[in-house]
């Protein structure tokens, strides 16, 4: 079952901030939800041999590219911060 620490760890992995009050609430709710979906535990279905799903992605060949720049402005308009046609982000590797 889920403890407050578990929820904290999951939130960090999922890049989501969860406040103290919310942590307690989620932990309590997760107990109920995991107890419900956990009923599969009692089921003996063979999971060792993985069944190939009936629906799956099929890749197509690349081809017929659109004209360069045709969508650049429309996409760049959505950027929170831009420099010309570049998306501007924080520096990740520092020099010092």
């Amino acid at each position: 079952m889920a403890s407050v620490d578990d929820v904290k760890k999951l939130a960090a992995l999922a890049r989501i901030g969860v406040g103290e009050a919310e942590l307690e609430k989620f932990a309590k709710e997760f107990d109920g939800i995991l107890a419900y979906v956990g009923q599969l535990d009692a089921l003996s279905v063979d999971t060792k041999e993985r069944v190939l799903p009936a629906v799956r992605n099929v890749m197509r060949e690349d081809g017929e590219p659109h004209a360069p720049g045709a969508y650049t402005e429309a996409l760049a308009k959505q950027f929170p911060e831009r420099e010309g046609n570049y998306l501007s982000v924080k520096q990740i590797i520092s020099h010092d």
């Binding site: 578990d6 999922a14 535990d41």
Partner: peptide
Amino acid sequence: LLGTYVLSAGYIDAYYRK
């Protein structure tokens, strides 16, 4: 959060694969 849980290494067999 629940999806992160059921896909995590320790639980993926018990939940997602099942």
